[in-house]
Design a protein around this nucleic acid. Structure first.
Lengths: 340, 340
DNA sequence: CATGGTGTTGGGAACGTTCCCATGAATGGT
DNA sequence: ACCATTCATGGGAACGTTCCCAACACCATG
């Protein structure tokens, strides 16, 4: 195809050694005389040389690439975190690419393989796997996005899910709801959900409400899950007297459920209250608008980048965990309810 | 941190030569006796060896990585195309990563540098640049997503924008609108927009309507652009008599405009008709729901993958262009209007 | 004038693979 | 029993960088 040119040819053309050319193109700060520098730059331009970073990476063990691995690139929640991380990392000279796993372990494994084989200098991941030991064995700096209870020895950044969940439940309580259900997932990110679920159970106990297993729904955090939730709810015998509000694991789920319910003639914010979690952009534009708890995506992404840079700088530093509080977004899918 | 092990150590451990180990790990089909194979596999497992694909790529000129470069990872339109392409490419053994440019030439240049330096076996891109010669000079197989008039000698896949635009305009016309405005962008993807704009102008001419430059809005294809559009519209003197419908360059823009207008007391689908283009998932959930033209994202992504694979297989094959028709999605943001 | 820095340079050895080629051992047909 | 294939193997040379080290020129200091 193209006759690839290497630094050797550049060196010949400029009348210097390949070492000198290397000193010019690598920003490692070896000293080069102005005269030689000029000749080399001219040669590079003449020949249209571009450095082969594969070879450079092989020798220097530095690829200047970072992988941001997210479970669902279609969900604005993740893509905004990715973008925020990208902003910060590019400022440090890294290039950022995004890997999409679609909650599939097989895809995740594929990206881990890539990392293991030395392709990235670091990763920001939200992983399905719980195998932290494996992550460490990869030998690549990793920052986890998303809170995980059990994990201690790895850098983590996320929202304080317990607080966010409490915020939502407390709001539902204050607005008069007493039969509060929850929709979360066993799938993939179970660790969050057990968080949500556990908080939910604690909350009920605290308020002295007997839990009703019939209004604890286990569905995927996706459009599909939302439709499942609607179906399960409607199939529930006498649901109107059993449940007056549902706290959904994320916004995508809540919006899809709202939609499916409306098609069945059930209006969120009227017949039942629905809350989400994340505050994705679409949440402000739905019909009705979605009451939810906002997660600070930009902060999370930036913090992830920060932690990753620190880890790359010093692989032996103690691991750190940064959690951000959520923010209640009052909209239309929850309405005041008179306590009987 | 990690005492990296190479095939040399594996070879020593297995009592064979590094060549034999290489034949085992490279799937290039060199023949290895069952006995040796077994010993090598055992050694690999024992030592926890993982192949350094950087080194492999350096020698073999094959990285098995594909970059999908999109202008806005936050827009579901792009992320779904990326996902569809990923499905197809992973089936062929490639790993897919996504690069997000945010419509920034600087970011785009960064990814092009990555490609130029031999990091990817191919790219699927939607590029701001018009410099096809530069793309060819990269020496990396590239498939362009998004229709471009002027470009001939490069593989392209996209929606037939002219048809999609006509579909929208024709629908507005049929529903009785006679003062149709348009909102497109000069920014970034200008090439589409001049398509839309040109089609728009042709359409008006055909219908014998005198164009009104005051209702041709030039805004970004983003939330921000939507707010700009709303502002410009409301600032227009006596706008209610000057415009009864606006065709927006994409859904994100249309939804944001709809939202901003509602805040100002102007209801889409009542006070004015609004149409989008793309049919992103959110379009079905807005208030009112958005009438738009759907682009077949999955088909586009899959076709892009197909074309790229073909190009990688044979770099000298003639370039191909695949365009898919759009589909009208009738919803609530356009209402019948009686012709006076 | 000797001494010791500092700046600049080039040669060669890595880095971890794959590729090419030579060698020797089996196999099969005549 | 002989030659021609095919198969299995190992040794070394790539691939295009960076890194290390030695060599040299230059300058200032004593």
């Amino acid at each position: 195809m193209k006759p690839k040119i290497s630094i050797i040819e550049v060196a010949r053309h400029a009348g210097v050694s390949k070492s000198t050319v290397s000193r010019v193109i690598a920003d490692s700060g070896g000293s080069v005389s102005p005269h030689a520098l000029e000749k080399v730059l001219a040669a590079i331009k003449d020949l249209g040389y571009t450095k082969n970073t594969l070879a450079a990476g092989l020798r220097s063990q530095k690829t200047w690439m970072i992988l941001v691995m997210v479970p669902d690139i279609t969900n604005p929640y993740w893509s905004e975190i990715a973008r925020a991380a990208q902003d910060r990392l590019e400022a440090e000279g890294f290039s950022v690419v995004v890997g999409n796993t679609d909650w599939l372990e097989s895809r995740e494994a594929r990206y881990f393989d890539l990392a293991r084989s030395g392709r990235f200098d670091g990763m920001v991941i939200n992983s399905v796997t719980n195998d932290i030991a494996m992550i460490h064995r990869m030998g690549v700096p990793v920052v986890l996005v998303g809170e995980r209870a059990e994990v201690q020895n790895i850098d983590t950044v996320g929202t304080d899910t317990i607080m966010a969940t409490r915020l939502a439940l407390e709001y539902l309580w204050t607005t008069g709801h007493r039969r509060i259900g929850i929709a979360t997932s066993e799938h993939g990110s179970e660790r969050f959900l057990s968080f949500r679920r556990r908080t939910y159970e604690g909350f009920l106990a605290e308020k002295g409400v007997a839990p009703d297993p019939g209004i604890v729904f286990s569905v995927k955090l996706s459009d599909e899950g939302g439709r499942d939730l609607a179906r399960s709810l409607l199939a529930l015998h006498d649901w109107r007297s059993r449940v007056d509000a549902i706290f959904c694991g994320n916004d995508i789920l809540a919006i899809a459920a709202m939609d499916a319910l409306r098609e069945a003639g059930v209006e969120a914010g009227k017949d039942i209250s629905l809350m989400g979690l994340d505050d994705i952009p679409a949440a402000a534009n739905t019909r009705p608008t979605l009451t939810t708890v906002r997660k600070p995506r930009a902060l999370i992404g930036a913090a992830a980048a920060e932690l990753l840079l620190a880890r790359i700088g010093d692989p032996d530093r103690p691991s750190e965990k940064r959690l951000f509080p959520g923010e209640l977004m009052v909209r239309g899918s929850v309405t005041e309810r008179h306590i009987i």
